[in-house]
Simulated scan of single mutants.
Amino acid sequence: MTPVELAATGGHAVAEHLETSPFAVRGLTVSYGGEPAVFSVDMTVPKGAMLAIIGPNGAGKSTLLKAALGVIPKVSGRVTVHGAPLEDQRRRIAYVPQRASVDWDFPTRVIDVVLMGLYRDLGLLGRLRADHRARAQACLARVGMEDFADRQIGQLSGGQQQRVFLARALAQQADLYLLDEPFAGVDAATEKAIIAVLKALKDEGRTVVCVHHDLSTVRDYFSHVFLMNRTRIAEGTVAEAFTEATLQAAYGGRLATAQIDRLAAV
């Protein structure tokens, strides 16, 4: 069995039973205009993992995540959260979309954006209490944005907006965090702040899944990887699945051999 075939069996990730996996996808297919953007993907995220979904541009990384969550339609596939259908477990999930997909001109304050993360607790007509506002303020403090609570969201920089959306996710107090390219277009200070929060969530026993594009930070940031190019290439721990063979299989000629060798080096 080749290294790619070994990694594609899933390593420790596939050994994780569906009943205990916080996020498992089976046979997910998404089609745009008759062409498959994601084809028959299986993915099993181990509990407590910090996992990066990686692959070349156009590989279907964001499509996979959005289709799994029901944000966009899928042709086929099944998604479970802790062994139960995703639809029954949404309270356990916090999702941070790509910043580019958000209407930042919407006239709302930073604190109000974070309070939106509490809607499941409040219900449609629920009344905000002092403890809700304190919880939202604490989440802003955790991402270094406590002094911006009354600022209009459109007045913030891109990095600051991303921190606010992470604070909103934190307010949900989920045990599964799904983030679509959280580091895209942010400054170095924001990236450092975000990764510190995500690692703290992992240390608390939460599970974190990120669509990620910067291969140079994979070893420093993540415990597990899922490599794809429209279909699954490999999954497992970074040591198992982030290798020269799997990177070559996923990226092919899009990465120079020297670059792959450097990225895969332990």
Rank of each mutant, 00 (worst) to 15 (best):
residue 37 A to P: 03
residue 231 T to D: 11
residue 24 A to Q: 03
residue 67 A to I: 00
residue 218 V to E: 04
residue 185 G to Q: 02
residue 4 V to G: 08
residue 103 D to L: 14
residue 107 P to L: 13
residue 266 V to Q: 15
residue 155 Q to F: 09
residue 162 Q to M: 05
residue 211 V to R: 01
residue 78 R to G: 14
residue 215 L to V: 13
residue 96 V to Q: 00
residue 6 L to N: 02
residue 33 G to S: 12
residue 206 R to H: 12
residue 40 S to C: 13
residue 185 G to H: 01
residue 232 R to I: 03
residue 221 Y to H: 06
residue 136 A to D: 02
residue 81 V to I: 15
residue 152 Q to S: 15
residue 120 R to P: 07
residue 119 Y to M: 03
residue 128 L to S: 04
residue 6 L to E: 11
residue 155 Q to M: 15
residue 266 V to I: 15
residue 263 L to I: 01
residue 59 A to G: 02
residue 50 M to K: 10
residue 124 L to W: 13
residue 126 G to R: 10
residue 243 T to C: 09
residue 28 L to E: 02
residue 83 G to R: 02
residue 115 L to K: 03
residue 59 A to V: 07
residue 189 A to H: 14
residue 37 A to L: 13
residue 178 L to S: 05
residue 66 K to A: 07
residue 201 L to E: 03
residue 55 G to N: 00
residue 136 A to C: 08
residue 31 S to P: 05
residue 102 V to F: 04
residue 242 F to G: 02
residue 261 D to F: 04
residue 264 A to E: 07
residue 9 T to S: 13
residue 64 L to R: 06
residue 65 L to E: 06
residue 224 H to Y: 14
residue 123 G to C: 09
residue 98 Q to T: 05
residue 117 G to H: 00
residue 242 F to S: 00
residue 172 Q to Y: 03
residue 199 K to S: 14
residue 245 A to M: 10
residue 12 H to E: 11
residue 116 M to Y: 02
residue 53 I to Y: 00
residue 5 E to D: 09
residue 189 A to C: 08
residue 108 T to L: 09
residue 112 D to L: 05
residue 221 Y to K: 01
residue 206 R to A: 15
residue 52 A to Q: 01
residue 88 D to K: 13
residue 176 L to Q: 05
residue 229 N to F: 07
residue 189 A to Q: 13
residue 180 D to L: 00
residue 161 Q to P: 02
residue 168 R to W: 01
residue 125 L to V: 12
residue 137 Q to P: 04
residue 47 K to P: 06
residue 71 V to I: 15
residue 26 R to Q: 14
residue 128 L to E: 09
residue 197 V to R: 00
residue 250 A to M: 02
residue 202 K to W: 09
residue 185 G to C: 09
residue 137 Q to A: 12
residue 106 F to L: 11
residue 58 G to E: 10
residue 132 H to I: 01
residue 96 V to E: 03
residue 192 K to Y: 15
residue 255 L to P: 05
residue 113 V to T: 07
residue 181 E to A: 07
residue 149 A to R: 00
residue 254 R to H: 13
residue 1 M to S: 12
residue 227 L to A: 10
residue 143 V to E: 10
residue 248 Q to I: 06
residue 125 L to W: 13
residue 101 S to V: 14
residue 134 A to N: 10
residue 83 G to T: 10
residue 203 D to K: 13
residue 32 Y to C: 09
residue 15 A to M: 15
residue 26 R to M: 10
residue 35 E to S: 12
residue 140 L to F: 08
residue 101 S to T: 11
residue 66 K to V: 06
residue 164 V to F: 06
residue 185 G to A: 06
residue 169 A to K: 05
residue 139 C to A: 11
residue 204 E to M: 04
residue 108 T to H: 06
residue 53 I to M: 05
residue 56 P to A: 10
residue 188 A to Q: 15
residue 51 L to Q: 02
residue 74 K to D: 07
residue 141 A to S: 15
residue 86 L to T: 02
residue 17 H to D: 10
residue 151 R to L: 06
